[in-house]
Design a protein around this nucleic acid. Structure first.
Ligand code: ZN
Ligand code: ZN
Ligand code: ZN
Ligand code: ZN
Lengths: 166, 166
DNA sequence: AAAGTGATGTTATATTGTTACATTATACCT
DNA sequence: AGGTATAATGTAACAATATAACATCACTTT
């Protein structure tokens, strides 16, 4: 189990998360014969600055000026996000119009997210078990699902603890 | 079980769905002492024109001109949608930026939707069973969910049948 | 009539995302 | 190295979705 899966809720060495994600990305792109260019790497690194979702225009604002000394246009960040999503490095959270790094990229997988409404921490769950438990329900409907998409708002363990008695 | 729960996938008397929804809405608003005004009723009726999600600007385009002979502004439709959502008569599908009528309004409940990527039919499932099956997973994470939000793309039974051998 | 409340109208603006086309970088072959 | 194809980026305009602020209207209560 990867570092960020285990203790993301706790205080932790987040550089570890970032560098782990970047390393995994480099490796994955090498394997697939695609380029993790400067822009793409920059966007991925920005996305990984926290375990909270980030908006596209937030990312855009944090990107450095290009060599012409100008701010990049929206297309820039959307293209990078498209690439990263295509290769499973980043997910989009539809309920928030925002993006977050995938802690176990590579395999095509479901998107099951626990979103803390207090601290905005996002925890991605492996969809396999959810999919298993849901399978009977779905087949009972005669429905053939492509991929699960779940964004569950609530309160994370950390914030429950902090908020006790409040 | 309501009409639209049972046979929405099949060809059916959709007027039955529409009038059922309008009647339920009127009753619910009476009970709660809130007004189902003309605008709100018009928007709800438009939403119920099909079992497919509808965009806010689509609705706007279909609203009749107001008494000044002008097209209503976006605020109009968003205000109506806000009201309808607040009272559980309509859901928003975040993955589509679109809205759909709730087939069993009134109770506050989860939003679990099966969305056919072929015909765009949307089937809402009661969240109770899903919630039950997911509970162990969520409590294992120490996460306290507010309400389930699931939008599952796939192929509906009807389209699977139609597409056989294609 | 006066005041209060909820609903609507009106105008402007914010936020998020896309299209189209030009230019530059990189890979690949001869 | 040169030539060609492909991938990536730049640039500008625009589309789609949603909200904010403030004025007006309708209805009720006093
Ligand atoms: Zn971390
Ligand atoms: Zn993931
Ligand atoms: Zn519902
Ligand atoms: Zn279908």
């Amino acid at each position: 189990m990867a570092h960020q899966d285990a203790i993301a809720y706790q205080s932790h060495d987040h550089h570890h998360c970032i560098e782990g994600a970047m390393k995994a990305a480099r490796q994955l792109c090498r394997q697939r014969g695609v380029q993790l260019t400067g822009q793409r790497e920059a966007v991925l690194r920005l996305v990984w600055q926290s375990h909270r979702p980030v908006g596209a225009y937030d990312l855009l604002g944090q990107l450095p000026d290009n060599r012409n000394g100008r701010k990049p246009a929206p297309t820039t960040v959307y293209r990078a996000l498209d690439f990263l999503r295509e290769h499973g490095l980043v997910h989009r959270l539809d309920s928030l119009n925002a993006y977050i790094g995938c802690p176990h990229p590579g395999q095509q997988h479901d998107g099951v997210f626990l979103i803390c409404r207090h601290c905005r921490h996002v925890q991605e769950l492996p969809g396999e078990r959810v999919r298993q438990t849901l399978k009977p329900l779905l087949t009972a409907q005669g429905f053939s699902p492509d991929a699960l998409l779940m964004e569950i708002p609530g309160v994370c363990p950390r914030c429950q603890q902090d908020g006790e008695g409040a």
